[in-house]
Design a protein around this nucleic acid. Structure first.
Lengths: 225, 225
DNA sequence: TCAAAAGTGTTCCTGTTACACCCATGA
DNA sequence: TCATGGGTGTAACAGGAACACTTTTGA
């Protein structure tokens, strides 16, 4: 970065695309806009970074402030910098990609916004700014991460039946998987292990609960079929 | 990006990590610093973006101005934002990742810098700023792209013998590949085709020249072994 | 006893790996 | 005629895909 000429009047923001799987559907969290001219539109949580704040810290803060969500998996996604992307002026946005289990989440927002809710990615409302493209980029990243890593841990509670894990894969990949092949493959990779405990309730045979051995990102080839 | 509070004094730059393969070695282009306190260190080409300039346009401009290189493959890599990464103040850098055939390149720089040259990635000099991490990130990206896409087209001239393509893969992956398996796999994927023309010169049998069918990024599974 | 989800193996097929020799040319 | 890189096929193996029935529970 050798040259340091001139001045700039460019602002830096972050936007955080957070996904979960609820009722077998992949969902993304959106905030309902209240103020004109955006009222009626929805947007991913986001805002300007602080003078001494990293973009990642900013994404964490903004998720907490605008949605009540904390302690999620978070990674940098991409930077969006079309000079016309924000009507208020030149704002470049470092977008983040986040995942959370659907259990843990109690949503709340501030009076600045009209609403917060989970939207199935298959039926999104009209989005503000360039957020349609940001969400699409995040979705591609999620599908790739799922195929090459153990990232599903961040979408599941500490213990879960294997059917829940398969449901998660199916929701994200958008296709059905063979139960026997899926279980064989997942157990072969060794990313999960049985806990010995069982699910209770439900008019059917109980399922053995499993856990991820490591709840941190690890690269493992496992495109299940 | 709902909230627009406060003011910021943050500058935005781009850095461009450009690779080529020369003499069977993967190399990265670095600029020799002239001014104190960085004199003697090397850095990836970079600089502040213009008020109405996209980061991609900026990366293109900077490569041309600081190294004389134009018309290269260019994609966004990641954004580096450690508040302490630049001693002059808060500068966040949107890093780009670029590739070029080694043939096409005549290097030249301006009097602001001491030198420009290709460095083998195996033996890099001491780098300024956080550029060591930026180059490492770019290298990982390159290896992944090579495995999942036809990106090698951007490192080769219009026509080339298959041995040159194999050499390119070997330089990037850092391991030797089996000649018969490599040729079979590459030809099966259909990303290259024979031109009918032959190499001339060299005290050995001439090689048939091939070309990439599409000189644009396409996703193709092809980790050759 | 019925409905609903859990759990379990084998066969076939495809794709990956390992491996050695002849060919065409210029010096 | 020799040195150099170009060019080719097959056999063994591993991993992926397809596929159906029994088990356990609560209602």
């Amino acid at each position: 970065m050798p040259s340091h000429p001139s001045s700039q009047d460019i602002k830096v923001a972050t936007d955080a695309v957070i996904f979960t799987v609820r009722d077998g559907k992949l969902c993304v969290l959106l905030i309902g806009m209240k103020k004109e001219p955006l009222a009626g539109l929805w947007a991913v949580p986001g805002g300007l970074i602080g003078e001494e704040e990293t973009t990642k810290a900013c994404a964490t803060r903004i998720l907490r402030e605008q949605t009540g969500i904390a302690d999620v998996y978070l990674e940098q996604l991409a930077t969006f910098d079309d000079p016309a992307r924000d009507p208020y002026g030149r704002v470049i946005s470092v977008a983040y990609f986040a995942l959370t289990p659907s259990e843990r989440v109690e949503l709340r927002t501030t009076e600045k916004y009209a609403d917060v809710r989970w939207w199935p990615v298959a039926k999104l409302p009209k989005l503000a700014y360039d957020h349609k493209g940001i969400v699409a980029t995040a979705l591609t990243r999620l599908r790739n991460r799922l195929a090459y890593t153990n990232i599903a841990w961040s979408l599941l509670p500490a213990e879960f039946p294997l059917s829940r894990l398969q449901e998660t894969y199916e929701a994200i990949l958008g296709r059905e998987l063979d139960k026997r092949n899926f279980r064989k493959k997942i157990l072969e990779t060794g990313i999960v292990e049985a806990t010995g405990r069982m699910t209770a309730g439900g008019a059917h045979r109980p399922a053995e609960l499993h856990r991820f051995k490591k709840r941190a990102l690890a690269y493992v080839e496992m495109l299940p079929g």
